[in-house]
Simulated assay, not measured.
Amino acid sequence: MRIRRLRSLGLALIVLGAAVLVAPTLGFDSIDAERRVSADAAANPNAQLGLQQAYDGTQIQYVDGIFGDTVVNATVANVTNRVGNPLTVDARVASIDWSGGSDAVLEVSNDGDFSGQLATNGTVPIRLGCSQQVSGTATDATVGITVDGSGDPVSVQGATIAVQNVAFNCDGAGAGDGDPPDDPIPITDPRIDLQVVGQPAATQGFFGANSVVTYDLENTGDDPVAVTGIHIADASAGSRVRRGGDELTIPASSTGNLDQTDGLSIGANAPQYDLDQNATIAGGQTAGVELGQFRAGSYFWQQVDMRGESVTVVLMVEGLNVSGREDPVPVEMTLSVQ
Rank of each mutant, 00 (worst) to 15 (best):
residue 1 M to H: 11
residue 6 L to F: 15
residue 9 L to A: 08
residue 10 G to I: 09
residue 11 L to P: 04
residue 11 L to G: 01
residue 11 L to F: 03
residue 17 G to P: 07
residue 22 V to F: 09
residue 24 P to R: 08
residue 24 P to C: 12
residue 26 L to A: 15
residue 27 G to D: 04
residue 27 G to Y: 07
residue 27 G to E: 10
residue 28 F to M: 14
residue 28 F to H: 14
residue 29 D to Q: 15
residue 30 S to D: 15
residue 31 I to Y: 09
residue 35 R to W: 08
residue 36 R to L: 12
residue 38 S to P: 03
residue 47 A to S: 12
residue 48 Q to E: 13
residue 51 L to I: 11
residue 52 Q to Y: 06
residue 53 Q to C: 04
residue 53 Q to V: 10
residue 55 Y to P: 05
residue 58 T to V: 14
residue 61 Q to T: 14
residue 64 D to F: 00
residue 64 D to Y: 02
residue 67 F to M: 09
residue 69 D to T: 03
residue 73 N to T: 14
residue 84 G to F: 12
residue 85 N to Y: 01
residue 86 P to I: 03
residue 89 V to W: 00
residue 90 D to I: 13
residue 91 A to F: 01
residue 92 R to M: 11
residue 94 A to D: 13
residue 96 I to C: 05
residue 98 W to E: 07
residue 98 W to D: 06
residue 101 G to V: 05
residue 106 L to P: 01
residue 108 V to I: 10
residue 110 N to I: 12
residue 110 N to Q: 08
residue 114 F to S: 07
residue 119 A to M: 13
residue 125 P to Q: 08
residue 135 S to D: 11
residue 137 T to N: 15
residue 138 A to K: 04
residue 140 D to Y: 06
residue 142 T to Q: 13
residue 148 D to Y: 02
residue 157 Q to I: 15
residue 161 I to Q: 05
residue 173 A to L: 09
residue 176 G to N: 06
residue 182 D to S: 15
residue 188 T to Q: 12
residue 189 D to V: 04
residue 199 Q to G: 05
residue 201 A to F: 06
residue 205 G to P: 00
residue 206 F to A: 13
residue 207 F to C: 04
residue 209 A to G: 10
residue 209 A to N: 10
residue 215 Y to F: 15
residue 215 Y to N: 04
residue 222 D to C: 05
residue 225 V to K: 02
residue 227 V to S: 03
residue 228 T to M: 12
residue 229 G to L: 03
residue 229 G to M: 00
residue 236 S to M: 10
residue 236 S to F: 06
residue 241 V to P: 00
residue 242 R to L: 13
residue 252 A to D: 06
residue 253 S to D: 14
residue 254 S to W: 03
residue 256 G to N: 03
residue 263 G to P: 05
residue 266 I to V: 13
residue 269 N to T: 13
residue 270 A to C: 07
residue 275 L to S: 00
residue 279 A to E: 01
residue 281 I to H: 01
residue 284 G to M: 09
residue 287 A to L: 03
residue 298 S to D: 08
residue 299 Y to L: 14
residue 305 D to N: 15
residue 314 V to C: 04
residue 314 V to K: 01
residue 317 V to I: 10
residue 320 L to Y: 00
residue 322 V to W: 02
residue 322 V to F: 05
residue 323 S to F: 11
residue 325 R to F: 13
residue 327 D to S: 07
residue 331 V to W: 08
residue 332 E to D: 05
residue 333 M to T: 12
residue 336 S to C: 02
residue 337 V to T: 04
